[in-house]
């Protein structure tokens, strides 16, 4: 097995008092600089997996964790949660869990983490401004974080982690309350992070954006990894539809067109790929 940045080997985890494990015999190697998307129905173990990788499990949630979790080939348990903080940024699903409440405006909220990391005052101001522009929240600078709409809070929560510039981003449904434009913007930022060599582990339902931007896709079902690998291999697998996994429209359309008798190439997942295939067909017909 190739050693990655984060390696999980036969990891099983049961929450305290739970009858059944939430993660079952999970093995995967996450490599530096790749963008991983985690799919699965709600309650399939996606957030639990994120918590294991970040070390919140078992430090914060307790319960029973077996198997190995390695960070840079060293057991994750050798690090304290705060030692991991500069390396791993975690964007919570619910922005209310993220926002500290320790500061009364958005600008200071985003600066808060940097202050805690001991960044010089002059640098903080510039970094925070850059991040706020990137996430399109400059106009919220003076507002109280708790008076914002859900979508605005979600962007502030994301910005406060971006400001810390960790190597690994673990991001749990960052766009659930955002409109399509803002969702695109978040994916665009994630894409930029990837290009800057960051490792991304993302839980997200927006399958079209995943098909465009992710490198690898992992599918969980009732705590088990049922399918994983390069996005073109995983997301073109029509059998996942029966398992209640949302697939790209291109995959569904390819299936419908094949059933209607068309010869559609394998492993198409994005709109551009489907468009090229259909244009080739049209060209063939008209010649």
């Amino acid at each position: 097995m190739v050693m990655g940045l984060i390696d999980l080997k036969n990891v099983t985890y049961t929450y305290p008092l739970a009858d059944e494990p939430s993660i079952k015999d999970f093995t995967y190697s996450f490599e530096q600089g790749k963008f991983y998307a985690i799919l699965g129905a709600n309650e399939s173990g996606k957030t639990t997996l994120c918590n294991i990788i970040r070390g919140f499990i078992p430090d914060f949630f307790q319960g029973e964790l077996t198997g190995e979790v390695l960070f840079n080939q060293e057991p994750l348990s050798h690090y304290t949660l705060s030692e991991l903080a500069p390396y791993m940024g975690y964007v919570f699903q619910n922005p209310f869990n993220q926002i500290t409440g320790a500061r009364d405006n958005v600008f200071e909220e985003i600066a808060y983490g940097l202050e805690n990391l001991g960044v010089a005052k002059g640098d903080i101001e510039k970094q925070v401004k850059d991040i706020m522009e990137m996430t399109n929240i400059m106009s919220l600078a003076d507002k109280n974080p708790f008076e914002l709409s859900g979508g605005q809070q979600q962007r502030v929560a994301f910005a406060s982690i971006l400001a810390l510039s960790p190597d690994i981003f673990i991001i749990d449904e960052p766009t659930s309350q955002l409109d399509p434009q803002e969702s695109e913007r978040i994916f665009d930022i994630i894409h930029q992070l990837k290009n800057a060599g960051k490792t991304i582990i993302l839980v997200e339902h927006k399958i079209e954006l995943i098909s465009e931007y992710a490198d690898e896709v992992l599918v969980l079902e009732e705590g088990r990894l049922i399918c994983s690998g390069k996005k073109h291999d995983v997301l073109s697998d029509i059998s996942l539809k029966e398992r209640q996994i949302d697939l790209p429209e291109t995959t569904l359309l390819a299936d419908a067109l094949r059933k209607a008798g068309y010869n559609i190439p394998e492993k198409l997942i994005t709109k551009e790929e489907m468009k090229a295939a259909l244009m080739a067909h049209i060209k063939g017909v008209s010649q």
Binding site: E208, E249, T250, L252, L253, A256, L257, A260, K271, M274, K275, L278, M279, I282
Partner: peptide, 22 residues
Amino acid sequence: FIMQLAEEIGLEDDILTIEDFV
């Protein structure tokens, strides 16, 4: 998505579903 694709390949502009598209 399906409507964008339909337009881009020159199909009618009132396609809302995969069935419409096929």
